[in-house]
Simulated assay, not measured.
Amino acid sequence: MPTVDRVLQAETGTEQTAVEPPARPDPEPIVSVVVPALNEAQNLPHVFARLPRVDEVILVDGGSTDDTVAVARRLRPDIRVVTQNRRGKGNALACGFAACTGDIIVMIDADGSTDPGEIPSFVEALRAGADFAKGSRFQPGGGSADITRLRRAGNKALSVLVNVLFGTSYSDLCYGYNAFWACHLDVFGLDSTSPAPEGADGRLWGDGFEIETLLNLRAARARLAIEEVPSFEHNRIHGVSNLNALTDGIRVLRTIAREWPRRRRDMSRPVAERAAR
Rank of each mutant, 00 (worst) to 15 (best):
M1H: 12
T3G: 10
Q9G: 03
A10K: 07
E11T: 15
T12C: 08
T12N: 04
G13N: 13
A18K: 14
P21W: 05
R24C: 05
P25L: 08
D26L: 09
E28G: 12
I30A: 10
E40C: 04
E40D: 08
Q42R: 06
H46S: 14
H46Q: 12
A49D: 15
P52K: 06
V54P: 02
E56D: 15
V57Y: 01
V57C: 05
I58W: 01
G62S: 06
S64P: 01
T65Y: 00
D66F: 02
D66P: 00
T68H: 03
R73F: 06
P77F: 11
P77M: 13
V82D: 02
V82A: 07
Q84L: 14
R86I: 10
R87Y: 14
A94G: 02
G96C: 09
D103M: 10
D109A: 00
D115R: 15
P120H: 13
L126T: 09
L126N: 04
R127A: 06
G129K: 14
D131C: 06
K134P: 12
S136P: 08
S136D: 06
Q139V: 10
G141P: 12
A145E: 05
R149C: 02
R149P: 07
N155V: 10
K156N: 03
F166T: 10
Y170F: 15
C174E: 09
Y175R: 10
F180E: 01
A182I: 04
C183R: 14
S192Q: 05
A196P: 08
E198M: 10
G202R: 14
L204T: 11
L204A: 09
N216Q: 07
R218I: 04
L224Y: 04
E227P: 00
N235A: 07
R236W: 05
R236I: 15
L243P: 01
N244P: 04
L253I: 07
I256W: 03
A257T: 02
E259Q: 08
R263F: 14
R269C: 07
V271C: 06
A272K: 10
A275V: 13
